[in-house]
Design a binder for these strands. Structure first.
Length: 477
DNA sequence: ATGTCC
């Protein structure tokens, strides 16, 4: 299938909404939520949107969020749902290598001014305590194989049961902190080996732990229900399932790549390796993916617990969980398709679930306002809290972040580390990087404008903006 | 994203 110049052929069919017409092997059209500006240089990733539209069982459309960029097989910012009972497939590439990567937001019982004098000491304590960067290192040590198995099955629930959090945390976690269908027999020895020493660690690249201030509130009632107010201090944690999730993706892509032909499936790109949800390989992947999902949540739970201890002993400040949501997962969900309710495998890769107000899976205090959606920005800019809206499109999904525009290599070539250091100092942002080189690769200029991404998402009717947060302190790998 | 190539 050759689709030329997709950018020029996009059909504008609504505000911040473009269609890629169905043709050739595509089973559905593509729908891209964005502005023309955000789609500059998006040709390769639009081709990936079209490729995803060829997958067996895909329904309605192959979607892309405003922060779309090139990814493994599927674009990052992609949403694709397949009909489980009509031969629909599951594809590891539709979740990505960092299974269950996500964001957690904690609200402090103080405002910026009250924290000002204690901030340097808190940053120094976090700098010493938070494991980060590539390779081994985690907060939960020693950690046995038996404990890992229980964590893969119990997620945040297990972490809290072992003393690493509060019961209330679980009510503010997607799926109550754990998914039930983890199958640890599908997690390889190698994945376990990599995961053992990394429980409670940030990782590297765009993952971070930030102390932030609520700079602006756009929706008072929703912000109130979420427990945040202007001027309030928050902590945002962005990380995933580390080497364990990566290894699970690697293992199951290989298995599916070898099995695909047996199901008569051909795909335009081998990176779209997939098998039916009901196949043994599909079930194996979903079971292992669920285990990685639990690992990711427990990872964020351990980091929250350590951050809480530091805030408490350094500044007598308490942190309560606003919400924890992943932006790299596949889920079996029921949605209405052409007037009938269907069981769908919804892949969200660099896309965030955004349940609307009234959704039964939302905890009671939030239900009236919709699901909190947490959008990590880039250091030195802003992060956002959004909420789901009634009738939300793309199976109730929205954006997940800024999305890179410069490669790491180009960022290092064009951005002077000393200049970045000076700008952060000028803006009063305390940074504790593991390496200044790594920090330079993550400079704001290397990313799309997160505010434009959020504006396009709201303009497309995918979510509503609740609050904007700005960084006071950044801990990074 | 990732023991940034078993």
């Amino acid at each position: 299938m050759k689709l030329v110049e997709l950018v020029d052929e996009l059909v504008e069919e609504g505000p911040y909404r473009f269609r890629i017409e169905q043709r050739d092997e595509m089973r559905v059209p593509g729908v891209v939520f964005a502005s023309r500006g955000l789609l500059r240089d998006a040709e390769q990733s639009l081709q990936q949107v079209a490729n995803v539209a060829t997958l067996p069982g895909i329904v309605v459309a192959s979607y892309a969020m405003p922060d779309i960029h090139w990814g493994y097989g599927f674009p990052i910012g992609g949403v694709a749902a397949t009909d489980v009972d009509e031969g629909g497939v599951v594809s590891p590439g539709g979740v990505g290598f960092d299974i269950s990567c996500g964001v957690r937001l904690l609200a402090a019982d103080c405002d910026r001014e009250e924290l000002r004098s204690a901030l340097p000491a808190i940053m120094d304590a976090l700098d010493r305590a938070i494991p980060r960067g590539a390779g081994p290192g985690g907060l939960w040590r020693p950690f046995t194989r038996r404990q890992l198995e229980r964590l893969l099955e119990g997620g945040s629930r297990y972490a809290v049961a072992e003393g690493h959090g509060e019961e209330r945390d679980l009510t503010r976690c997607e799926d109550g902190g754990a998914v039930a269908d983890a199958d640890i027999t599908q997690v390889s020895e190698r994945a376990r080996e990599r995961g053992l020493g990394q429980v409670g660690s940030l990782g590297s690249a765009n993952h971070f732990l930030e102390i932030q201030e609520v700079a602006e509130v756009y929706d008072e009632p929703a912000a109130n229900a979420f427990g945040i107010a202007r001027g309030q201090v928050c902590v945002m944690i962005h990380c995933g399932s580390r080497g364990l999730g990566h290894q699970i993706c690697t293992d199951h892509v290989r298995a599916m790549d070898q099995a695909m032909a047996r199901y008569g499936i051909t795909v335009p790109d081998r990176q779209l390796a997939c098998t039916p949800v009901h196949s043994p390989e599909g079930q194996a992947y979903l079971g292992a993916m669920a285990a990685a999902a639990n690992y990711g949540r427990a990872n964020r739970q351990l980091l929250s617990d350590m951050t809480r201890r530091i805030f408490r002993r350094t500044a007598d400040v308490r942190l309560s969980l606003v919400y924890d949501v992943s932006h790299n997962l596949a889920k079996i969900e029921t949605h209405e398709v052409n007037g009938t309710h269907r069981r769908l495998c919804v892949h969200r890769k660099g896309a965030t679930r955004a349940f609307p107000p009234g959704h039964p899976e939302l905890p009671q205090p939030l239900r009236k306002f919709g699901q909190p959606v947490l959008i990590p920005g880039t250091m030195g800019t802003a992060s956002y809290v959004l909420t789901g809206v009634p009738g939300g499109d793309a199976f109730h999904s929205t954006c997940h972040g800024a999305g890179r525009t410069l490669s790491r290599h180009r960022a290092l070539r064009t951005i002077a580390t000393e200049d970045l250091r000076a700008r952060l100092k000028r803006d009063g942002i305390a940074v504790r990087p593991l390496s200044w080189r790594g920090l330079t690769e993550e400079a704001p200029e290397a990313y799309k404008d997160v505010s434009a991404v959020v504006a396009a998402s709201e303009g497309a009717g995918l979510c509503r903006t609740v609050a904007r947060l700005v960084p006071l302190g950044v801990v990074k790998g």
